[in-house]
Design a protein around this nucleic acid. Structure first.
Lengths: 229, 229
DNA sequence: CCCAGATTGTGAAATATTTATAAATTCTAG
DNA sequence: CTAGAATTTATAAATATTTCACAATCTGGG
């Protein structure tokens, strides 16, 4: 399981830091603080966080300088905090390597949303070309299209995800519990017959009649596998 | 025969304007002046010049903002004027769409040389013909015009940008979040239903009745794609 | 081979989720 | 200030998912 994301908040305003801490911790983040640019940089160097919230106006070294220093050694996401009247251009922050910016005063919910968005964006930076090819079967996760025997077909999300997961590990058997966890999500709690129903529908859609050298096979007493001969 | 090149000088310093005018006219340019960003933009809109000389520090709307506004509708060459001590990264100006920059105080001969260089460069440049062509559908981003089934139509900016983005990546599915990020802008924070509404209006405008070999398709549970058969 | 017990397949109803649409509101350029 | 555009909101419609009862199938032992 994933650990808490560590966020470093660099701002000279004690109230801001408190506010941010309050909301972020409520949302499951681990929060660290620094009140000047220099201290922020120190904190970053000692233990790099997963994301930095950086005020622009700081005593001593300002936010831009900190951002630049951090960028010399790291690509962690950085979100700038700017006052409304600092009419600085978004592009400037970008140029310096920030990933987003939020103007003060800000809505804490918006801040959270942006943090998550940035985190996601930087994680998905290199989306793996998701396509699996078998004789008479192509699973394209970019277009969300499954081509079987030359005919394109659209499947509901869960079905295509299940198929993709099974086909990604040919011949490997998965229990229903494993599939629920890996396809539905680790925190999913539900009936394992759900898997059966999805398998059934997949089968009638993609292997209705013809015989391929692959199939979704039931392993009695265990679960299912995508078998390739 | 070619006419005189028209140059718009935007600077709040009367002396600078005079100086530039003096040298440029001696070199056969037609010179227009504006003393603030807003006036410069007005002048640009009334009669777009062949090239703009833009001071960075301006009362009211500054040079960057003017540059951006101009860039929204035009690719005319822009040269930035910056004071020596404004230690801006050249890259920053370039990022905003400027073609070159000159630091004050400048040697008029250098300015002339740069103007000519930029003019030459931008003339020979291959304009990024932002145009996408499908059977019965032409998306022209230069004119912001969409031609569907032979009839031209003007769409609101967001709609055409969305269409352009989707059509630029045929068959690829985008989530609403991705579209918000990539079409609306990375810093946009808003409701993802917004995308639905724009898609709806696009659909009723460009694929109301006839059947084409393309369409904006909903991928249930995921997002939208511009499908081409 | 047949049976009992366990496991899986199936169809259909109940739920939940996602999308379409229209209408109201806010925003923005002029 | 005004009109058109963008966005939000609310509701209806479409679609997917889950559940559940029962049928069908498999397995191992007698």
């Amino acid at each position: 399981m994933k650990e808490k994301s560590r966020i470093l908040v660099v701002d000279d305003d004690r109230n801001i830091r408190q506010l941010v801490r309050l909301y972020l911790e409520k949302d499951g983040f681990e929060v660290h603080e620094a009140e000047t640019g220099d201290k922020g940089l120190d904190a970053f160097r000692k233990q790099p966080p997963d994301l930095m919230l950086l005020d622009l106006m700081l005593p001593g070294m300002d936010g831009w300088q900190v951002c630049r220093e951090v960028r010399k050694v790291s690509n962690i996401p950085i979100i700038m905090l700017t006052a409304k009247d600092e009419t600085f251009d978004k592009v400037l922050g970008l140029e310096l390597g920030a990933d987003d910016y939020v103007t003060k005063p800000f809505d804490p919910k918006e801040l959270i949303a942006r943090i998550k968005a940035v985190a996601r964006r930087t994680q998905n930076a290199v989306p793996p070309a998701k396509e699996i090819i078998f004789p008479n079967l192509v699973i394209n996760m970019t277009n969300y299209v499954v081509t079987c025997d030359g005919t394109d077909m659209e499947l509901p999300p869960k079905e295509i995800e299940l198929l993709f997961h099974l086909a990604s590990h040919p011949n490997q058997v998965f229990t229903r519990e494993q599939l629920l966890e890996q396809v539905w999500g680790f925190d999913y709690f539900g009936d394992s017959r759900t898997v059966d129903v999805h398998v059934k529908r997949l089968r009638e859609k993609i292997q209705g009649d013809s015989d391929h050298n692959w199939q979704i096979k039931t392993v009695w007493g265990v679960g299912y596998k995508f078998e390739v001969k």
